[in-house]
């Protein structure tokens, strides 16, 4: 399953809920304000890095760039563009958006 999170982890609990529910081998795509969690120094960085052991973590590149975060992405997080976003949706049987 592909999990999509779009809210900042320092503003809402949706990333935490997502990480608690995502099973081993699932993919988590961070978009919009959720991308801050995948950057160096963020309060959620440790959680993301721990989760990356069992989950594939992706972040949307244009959203990182728009937030001045393109150069601060955590190791182990895969940056994708819009075409990569579409590929992720297409290659997973189902999607869950954590609104």
């Amino acid at each position: 399953m592909l999990h999509i999170v779009n809210k900042s982890a320092t503003d809402r609990g949706s990333l935490e809920s997502c990480l608690a529910m995502a099973t081993k081998g699932s993919a988590v795509l961070l978009i919009e304000d959720a991308v801050y969690a995948a950057t160096n120094g963020s309060a959620a960085a440790a959680k993301i890095q721990a989760a990356a052991a069992d989950l594939k973590i992706y972040a949307l590149g244009p959203d990182l760039a728009a937030r001045g975060m393109a150069a601060r992405v955590l190791d182990g997080v895969n940056v994708v563009d819009y075409a990569g976003f579409v590929d992720l949706v297409a290659e997973h049987k189902s999607c869950q958006s954590w609104l």
């Binding site: 590149g61 244009p62 959203d63 760039a65 728009a66 937030r67 001045g68 393109a70 150069a71 563009d81």
Partner: peptide, 8 residues
């Protein structure tokens, strides 16, 4: 700094 919004 370094914000680039062209992509969105």
């Amino acid at each position: 700094k370094g914000i680039d919004t062209k992509g969105i």
